[in-house]
Simulated assay, not measured.
Amino acid sequence: MLRTSFVTEESVYGVILVSGMIVVAGGHGETSWQVFWTVVVTVLVFWAAHVYAGTVAHHGFDDHRMVGLGEAFRGALRRSFGMLVAALIPSSILLLGAARVVPDLLAIWTALWVGVLVLAVLGLIAFRRRGASPVMQVVGALGTAAFGIAMILLKAVIH
Rank of each mutant, 00 (worst) to 15 (best):
A57L: 13
P134W: 03
V101P: 02
I149M: 01
G26M: 11
P90V: 02
L124M: 12
K155I: 00
V138G: 02
V41Y: 11
L88Q: 02
A156N: 00
S5Y: 09
F61Q: 10
G148C: 07
A48I: 13
L119A: 06
L119M: 10
R130E: 11
L2T: 08
K155A: 15
M21T: 14
I93Q: 00
A146H: 02
W109C: 01
I16W: 01
A72Y: 08
V39Y: 05
M151D: 00
P103R: 12
T38S: 15
V139G: 04
V157C: 01
G60E: 06
V138W: 11
A141Y: 04
A111E: 04
A49I: 11
E30K: 12
T55D: 07
W113Y: 14
R65K: 14
V41W: 08
F81D: 00
V114S: 05
V24S: 08
L117N: 03
I89F: 10
T38L: 08
S32R: 12
I152E: 00
L153Q: 01
A145Y: 12
H59L: 08
P134F: 03
S91Y: 01
F81C: 00
G143V: 04
V101E: 08
R3Q: 11
I125D: 05
V102C: 09
L112G: 03
S92V: 10
V67D: 01
I152K: 00
V85Y: 04
L96M: 14
V7D: 06
S92F: 15
Y52P: 00
H64N: 14
I93G: 00
L88T: 13
W113S: 05
L17I: 11
V40Q: 09
W109S: 05
E10M: 11
A150N: 01
V139Q: 07
R3N: 10
I16G: 01
F73A: 13
Y52V: 13
A146T: 10
P90T: 04
F36P: 03
L2H: 09
V15H: 00
G60T: 05
Y13C: 04
L84G: 12
H58L: 11
G70C: 01
H64F: 13
L84F: 14
V138R: 06
A87G: 06
T31S: 15
V116L: 03
L153I: 06
S19K: 04
I16Y: 00
G131T: 03
S5N: 07
K155S: 10
A87P: 04
A132K: 09
G70N: 12
V45Q: 08
R65T: 13
A53N: 09
G68S: 12
A48R: 03
V41L: 14
L122E: 12
A25C: 11
G97S: 10
A132S: 12
T110L: 15
W113N: 04
T110N: 05
V114H: 01
G82N: 09
V23M: 09
F6L: 13
W33C: 00
H58E: 13
L106A: 14
F61E: 14
A57F: 10
L94I: 09
D104H: 15
T4F: 07
H58P: 02
M21A: 14
S19I: 02
F36K: 01
V7L: 07
G27Y: 06
F127E: 07
E30S: 13
L153E: 04
I22R: 09
A99W: 14
V12P: 01
G143N: 10
K155W: 06
G27F: 03
V85R: 01
R79D: 15
R100H: 15
R129A: 15
D62R: 15
F73H: 13
W37T: 07
